[in-house]
Nucleic acid binder design. Sequence first.
DNA 1: TACTTCGCGCGAGACAGACA
DNA 2: TGTCTGTCTCGCGCGAAGTA
Length: 282
Amino acid sequence: MRKESMHHQVEIIYSQTDQCPMTDSSFNFFQFVHIVSGSGSHEVNGNRITYQAGSFLLITPNDYHAFYVETLTEFLIIRFNKGYIKEYQWKSIDHIECLLHNASHVSGCIIENANDKLLVNSIVGSILHNIKYNDLYNNDLNQHLINALIVIAARNIAKFKPANIKEHANKKIVDIINYIQSNIYSPGQLKAPVICGKFGVSTNYLSVYFKEACGETITHFIANYRLRLIEYRLNFSDCRINELVEEFGFADESHMNKFFKRHKGMSTSTYRGAKDALVISA
DNA sequence: TACTTCGCGCGAGACAGACA
DNA sequence: TGTCTGTCTCGCGCGAAGTA
């Protein structure tokens, strides 16, 4: 299987085809694929989901994927590598690479928010316009537009809901989940009395209420979300363990270590060491 | 059906000490 | 210096049962 690589940190490719433009290839960069027009399906790591005009897909490094085009399809493909993510100063999101990797388990369009869909369509339209009408500073302009797409993608990924959240879940439970995800770095804000006070639910009823709507207890949900972020930070950052301890609001390293080991069966440093060994041997 | 009460078990926090 | 392990205490969350 061939391995694609990039010549620049960011590349924009416009393609119109009725055949598969990218089949069964692997690569070490991120790709946004916006479907300008057309329909078909997209298979990522064995999951096949239909696409249509307006779909905004994210393919993460080392995903195996293929497009199955049904009607003539226009693709706008934006590629950027890890170096690009690390170099750019994201004001409020210092773990954006983690968020993008976080979407590797998600198939289909990554933009769920209706307003963000409009925003993405507008930005993609501007990029297409810049490609068509080459002008002074277009590269800089496109880079800013791509950064905007990255931020929009990150915030939609950050708001992915639990897989088994009930269809009828009311606005309150969605608000609670959003609140948890927004305050995941402040454990004090995630205590039951605080959440209950904010959302007008009885302290002892919260866990029942949450489990009824989401199929898992609130502490399990918080622990899993926290654990996933720690995993990504261990995988994709050079942060020291005690920096993560501070970031995630643990009392000390031992506490985070116990938390991590209880769920993953190994200490944080062992986990990072195992990951590094895999990278070296790859 | 929506919410409350209550008792128990678990996990968070604090600390000491070991190890590389 | 950075990380890991063990122990102890206490508060909190969970789930069962009860109530309106």
